[in-house]
Design a protein around this nucleic acid. Structure first.
Length: 938
DNA sequence: ACTCTGCGTAGAGGA
């Protein structure tokens, strides 16, 4: 039984006498979510009354298993015993955040601001955890240690440590783990075979039901996290610190209890799903189904000197998990969710933390000093200016709003009804398992046959792979290796030929692949908070002056000529080279922006500068490297994941595993380091500093995203075009959707230069964009560029084209009709246009098809398997000789996708020689800009 | 109402 609704009122808690003695109660009024109308009263008893301290009208509340009672014809609910309430259940709290909060609420806040530090205990702890996982998988301890240290090579090297030294440290911990595991095996009653033959053989995980690194996501409690290990349904947490007390640390117990709570939910769900339990009639609540013990394994205990330490030195400490502890975890989780509801800032007074013993005391005081926040530890230092504080708060709130949007994505994981699935493009469901294979290194390749449904899941994405139910079933994080047409030779596990869409993923554990879900990650939001913190709280005031308009950016004169035949490009390089603070290069489509960037980078390198080259996407970073390569410069280190970096750029990629000294040395000695802005916010690059940061496609970046790169350098150059697509963000307001590039170019036009000659489009094709978006300033670089025509291509004959497609720009109205986000008839017409160009001798490779919606892209893709078909957004950055645009909309132009005119600019400026617009004239004419576009094209 | 890329996923410890 569960209730869910919005809080409309919270009464003052009071104490009443009951048959059991004095008791606290608090009444909460809820407006039920689904229509039911009449508000419901819920009475909270005992400790649940604490909720009244932070519960507010407007918050969403879920009530599980309340006691029901009829009173004067009205149903009343009360919460106590095994019932529970969850505040803002859509907000998913991390288990480690619950852990931090019970230490001190301020620690929870500080973790969000400044999370990318590199520290030896953390790196060592990570290695020990990985070794623990390997031991559970039955691997040899020495092999595991060597391999995991190699994996952490870069981090270890950046910390200035040697592999041998770390191996020594890790070995002590590993032995403790091994000893404990073996002891467990020998004493287990069901490990009789081991005990009976009396042999002292090593731990074998197959003999007991262990599971390592279990990802848990709880819909019911609004929590997520990953347990180190689960042994017979009970949580086991590994801690590489020391604890000589008899009891585990409180926050460690809380962490393990949070996993226990989510394991209880899973157990209750699977019991409810099984027929056995249903016939018994008595379903168990998650609190009842939760394991009643947890284990903390303090591995450092085994390594301490027994002569110097007193106390309990056994590494493993068991504790019992009762309903009180489980409910405490829920209440703590609720406090966090409630604070996030109105993006408050914790002061530390909420808890009984003793600041003088806190490791974060200095950071805590510094942050509260810089931001003039109230905190229990007090303030130190001088506050940043008020306008910076306002900026900080505005962006902090905007980033947290993005985080909530990520959380809403999780809700899709538990949508199970067919109707919900039907319009859910975040999942691929009803897959048919088609085999599995173990790969080197213990990972698995899983295959399935897809239904061909449209989804946002793409190759290279991180997804949740499951047996059909990502929340309660068997689920593993996986990487999508392939989604596409099966090769005719492929077979499934039974040797049967597989036809249709073939799906291949890799994961740590095998499972029957029946469903893939997008795995929402908060990583970007974490990195943005980090960048915001570093830029505002740790940068020197002088560096921030130009960002906050307290000073104009300065330039020193540069006389040198860098580019002979293009004054604007040459000016851009001189501006960048002479910039004391920053320079802005505005590069409309086809203006040689990337070429200029590469030339600029070389000029800076020649002056001895160390450079960070960055952009939002891997594609943009690799394109920039390609331009450098074309100019003969290859002294580059590319930092990024293997799956993110383009195949031909892998040779520049920094190997993060290997000898620590070598890994760190390669990065430290690199003159040019290239990485996405997200990677710039990570630990590896946080350890580096640069003279200049050069950021490409800066119009696509949020302000904090840009700052992630620029804060690492003394000066910066932003290259981009704010008339093309802005950053993709969930929130509607301008805070994040406006780029720093745009703000600065408007505030300091003198610091920018616009590249005005384009080398891509024929005169007629560029005319509309030039007029609408670039004040008529954009023009063809040469007469040849202006006059190019489709029959310039070898073997192409203009006469072979239908009359209406012979002009450089054409408009076709196929009289189709929009169905959802597709227009099948329009797709047919697009296919006919493409066929006409093919028939006239244009190679398929020279043709691109663009549509605003992904659904229409799929529709077109089916008809045009040989041609590049994609969304406007994904086509940005590339071009084709012939571009056909499908507008889809009929009747009217309603929809957010059509509101941003910059999307038209991108779509129309991809074409070099021929551009064909296919759409409904009536719909397009309803809007002034689109109407002018049709008039121009016709 | 749409568009969608990132990131070793989250958590790793100090006393």
């Amino acid at each position: 039984m569960q209730l869910r609704g919005v809080v409309v009122g919270v009464e003052e808690p009071k104490t009443v006498s009951t048959q059991y003695g004095e008791s606290d109660l608090c009444e909460v009024t809820l407006r039920p979510e689904r229509g039911a109308g009449e508000p419901t009263t819920v009475t909270l008893w005992g400790k649940w009354t604490e909720t009244a301290d932070y519960l507010e009208a407007g918050m969403e509340l879920a009530v599980y298993d309340p006691d029901e009672r009829q009173y004067r014809g009205e149903t009343q609910y009360s919460v106590g015993g095994d019932s529970a309430i969850v505040v803002e259940p859509d907000f998913l709290v991390d288990v480690t955040d619950v852990r931090a909060w019970v230490q001190c609420p301020r620690m929870y806040y500080l973790r969000k601001l400044d999370g990318a530090d590199l520290a030896y205990p953390l790196v060592k702890g990570t290695v020990v955890h990985e070794v623990f996982g390997d031991l559970l998988r039955g691997r040899d301890v020495e092999t595991a240690i060597d391999e995991q240290i190699e994996q952490a090579g870069l981090d270890i090297g950046l910390l200035g440590r040697e592999a041998d030294e770390v191996a020594g440290d890790v070995r002590d911990h590993a032995k403790a783990i091994e000893g404990w595991l073996n002891q467990g095996t020998l004493t287990d009653s069901d490990g009789a075979a081991t005990a009976a033959d009396g042999s002292d053989r090593d731990f074998s995980p197959a003999e007991s039901d262990w599971r390592s690194e279990m990802t848990l996501i709880s819909e019911r409690f609004g929590m997520k996290g990953r347990a180190d290990a689960v042994r017979r349904g009970t949580p086991v947490e590994l801690k590489t610190g020391k604890n000589t007390k008899r009891e585990p640390r409180f926050q460690d117990k809380i962490q393990a209890t949070a996993y226990a709570l989510m394991l209880g939910e899973r157990a209750a769900n699977s019991l409810a799903a099984s027929d056995v339990m249903a016939s018994d009639g008595g379903a168990q609540s998650p609190l009842e189904a939760a394991p009643d013990t947890g284990t903390l394994l303090y591995t450092k205990n085994a390594a301490v000197d027994r002569n110097e330490e007193s106390g309990d030195l056994s590494p493993a400490k068991e504790f019992s998990i009762g309903s009180g502890l489980l409910q405490y975890v829920i209440r703590t989780r609720n406090e966090i969710a409630a604070m996030e509801y109105d993006t408050g800032v914790p002061t530390g007074y909420e808890a009984n933390a003793k600041c003088e013993y806190c490791f974060e005391q200095d950071t805590c005081m510094a942050v509260s000093g810089r931001l003039d926040q109230e905190s229990k530890a007090g303030q130190v230092g001088v506050a940043i200016p008020e306008d910076e504080r306002e900026y900080f708060e505005r962006f902090y709130d905007a980033i947290e709003a993005e985080r909530r949007a990520v959380h809403r994505e999780y809700a899709k994981l538990w949508e199970q009804t067919p109707e919900e699935r039907a319009d859910d493009d975040r999942a691929l469901v009803d897959l048919e398992p088609a085999g599995r294979a173990e790969l080197d290194g213990g990972r698995w390749e899983l295959r399935a046959k897809g239904t061909g449904a449209v989804s946002k899941i793409r190759e290279g994405n991180l997804v949740l792979a499951s047996d059909g139910d990502p929340v309660t079933g068997d689920a593993e994080l996986a990487r999508v290796e392939r989604i596409g047409e099966a090769r005719s030779t492929s077979e499934n596990a039974n040797g049967e030929a597989v036809s249709g869409e073939e799906i291949v993923v890799t994961a740590d554990e095998p499972l029957d692949l029946r469903r893939l879900d997008v795995y929402p990650s908060e990583l970007t939001t974490d990195r943005l908070q980090n960048a915001l913190h570093d830029a505002l709280l740790t940068q020197a005031p002088e560096r921030k002056d130009v960002l906050f308009g307290r000073r104009d950016p300065e330039f020193s004169a540069v006389e040198e000529t860098f580019i002979d035949n293009n004054p604007a490009q040459d000016e851009a390089v001189r501006l960048a080279v002479g910039a004391e603070d920053f320079a802005l290069v505005h590069g409309p489509p086809g203006t040689g922006k990337t070429y200029t960037l590469a030339r600029m980078l070389r000029a800076l390198v020649e002056r001895g500068d160390r450079i960070l080259l960055s952009a939002f996407t891997n594609r943009a970073v690799d394109n920039a490297i390609e331009a450098l390569e074309e100019q003969g410069f290859t002294d580059i280190v590319r930092v990024g994941t293997e799956s993110g970096v383009r195949e031909d750029m892998q040779k520049y990629r920094l190997e993060q595993s290997g000898d620590p000294g070598e890994c760190a040395g390669t990065l430290r000695n690199a003159q040019v380091v290239a990485a996405t802005t997200a990677t710039c916010g990570g630990t590896a690059l946080q350890s580096q500093s640069f003279d200049v940061a050069v950021v490409d496609e800066a119009g696509q970046l949020t302000e904090p995203g840009t700052l992630a790169a620029t804060t690492l350098a003394d000066r910066f150059v932003l290259v981009g075009d704010h008339q093309q697509l802005p950053p993709v963000v969930q929130s509607e307001d301008e805070t994040l959707s406006r780029s720093l590039f745009q703000r600065l170019i408007e505030a300091s036009p003198e610091a920018g230069v616009m590249l005005d000659r384009q080398y891509r489009m024929a005169q007629h094709i560029q005319a509309f964009a030039s007029r609408e978006f670039y004040d008529g300033q954009l023009r063809p670089a040469t007469g040849e560029v202006a006059a190019q025509r489709i029959d310039d291509l070898p073997g192409v004959s203009l006469d072979a084209l239908p009359a209406n497609l012979r002009d450089r720009v054409a408009f076709v109205d196929p009289d189709g009709s929009q169905v959802g986000n597709t227009n099948p008839r329009e797709a047919d017409a697009v296919a006919e246009v493409v066929a006409a160009y093919r028939g006239a001798g244009v190679p398929a490779d020279d043709i691109g098809v663009i549509a605003p919606f992904r659904a229409q892209v799929a529709e077109l893709d089916r008809r045009l398997p040989d041609v590049a078909v994609d969304t406007v957004d994904r086509f940005q950055g590339s071009s084709k000789e012939v571009i056909v645009v499908s507008f889809v909309a009929t009747g009217s132009l309603d929809g957010p996708i059509f509101e941003d005119y910059r999307r038209i600019n991108v779509a129309l400026t991809r074409a070099k020689k021929s551009l064909v617009l296919v759409g409904d004239e009536a719909a397009l004419s309803a809007d002034d800009v689109y109407r002018r576009m049709v008039e121009w094209a016709r």
